[in-house]
Design a protein around this nucleic acid. Structure first.
Lengths: 217, 217
DNA sequence: CCTTTGGATACCTACCGTCGGTATGTATAA
DNA sequence: TTATACATACCGACGGTAGGTATCCAAAGG
């Protein structure tokens, strides 16, 4: 294929195709040849010119996805009109709304057959989302008095893990009813730790999410 | 190598070698050839006579590990001298004590570089440990009045996830102090949901576990 | 200002070693 | 004799590389 004047377009093309295939078929069941076949004329040489390994493509794909959603989280973090607990609420709500129209959702990826992506998500949740976004908010809430917690780091991890992994319909299959129950238990847990975050609207959104996901499979 | 009169010994040999290598190097970075090289003379034909794929070896390995620990859990489940909450307590305590002398611990496997094993553990926890062992105990506790919960299935999943994954030193690196804080937060969460399970002895054991694991790395 | 030229970069093709897996052969236990 | 426990030789597909070609761009020369 002709040389592209803007190589970042080629990089993006490779990333788009790879991301889709990784989601659909899983990282390990996607071969370089599979990617090539969906590149519209580009060859293996092109891929290995821009990336030094298949692994590096996966890293770039996950970095891009996480980067997108984290940039959106960062917005909430900086708002001055909200105290700690309100920021937590806003964060949850917006991340739920976002998911509904998320692209990743439409391809209905099964993390079940995608241990690589699952592991990435799990570790990014604990090592990035929790300390970078949730923990600061909790610490803020402790200072402004809206949250009572003694170990913000661990609390942030726990909340992030439950919200990002356990409740995630892409990881664990659930009926709408089960999702509802999960949310009730999650709410009970949060309230038990003095965090009143979940409201009816969130529960409704989450059930909507679950059913959208169910249908798209 | 000469034909073995007791083929199950060969199967066990393959499983032992594979388990060790999977832990040390990760499933994906362990080749069939690596396994053969550690088999002491056996060949690829032997492996594929007993297992139909590398995947099946992994399944057998994880099944064996999970089977061992589940058989021990099952013992607690059947005791008649304990009510629900007491069974939960006993379960936690014994699983902590067991881990201290667990073989798996001594090779210091890094789930970090082992997405396959990590995913297996995660799904076995939610789809096996929780519904087969924790949920029945909670339901028993509801009946005998020692536990108050409305959604035993979800509660069982939540507890299992936190205990088996979040607190697991093989999955997330922690200092002893962080482990201690995790346990405090876990305890607070459980108490918030009406479950008084954690005591000082468990906390001590868990910190011991963490330090053993740290040293073995 | 236009042209030439040279090197950096985008990309292609052919090929390599290794991988997981199979077909087939052989020796031994029952 | 038959079924089973292995060994051996081989296969296609895989991830990755070597080396070549084509295109872009910038600086030099006219």
């Amino acid at each position: 294929m002709a040389r592209n004047k803007y190589p970042e377009e080629t990089v993006n093309l490779i990333l788009n195709v790879s991301a889709r295939l990784f989601m659909e078929k899983g990282y390990e069941h996607t071969s370089i040849q599979d990617i090539i076949d969906n590149l519209g004329g580009l060859s293996k040489g092109a891929i290995y010119h821009h990336f030094k390994s298949k692994e590096e493509i996966l890293d770039a794909v996950t970095d891009r996805i996480m980067g997108e959603s984290n940039r959106k989280l960062a917005g909430t973090l900086e708002r001055r009109d909200l105290n700690g607990i309100e920021k937590l609420r806003t964060l949850f709500k917006s991340s739920l709304c976002r998911s509904v129209q998320d692209e990743i959702f439409k391809v209905a990826p099964s993390f079940y057959n995608n241990p690589r992506l699952l592991a990435s998500l799990l570790y990014e949740t604990i090592e990035l989302t929790a300390p970078e976004f949730i923990q600061p908010i909790i610490e803020e809430g402790i200072v402004d008095g809206s949250i009572a917690a003694e170990h913000p780091k661990q609390l942030a991890e726990l909340i992030s893990l439950v919200a990002n992994v356990w409740i995630n319909p892409m990881i664990f299959d659930n009926t709408e009813e089960e999702t509802y129950h999960k949310f009730l238990v999650f709410d009970q847990m949060l309230k038990g730790m003095g965090l009143d975050i979940i409201d009816e609207e969130m529960v409704a959104r989450m059930c909507e999410l679950t059913s959208i996901y169910q249908r798209s499979k």
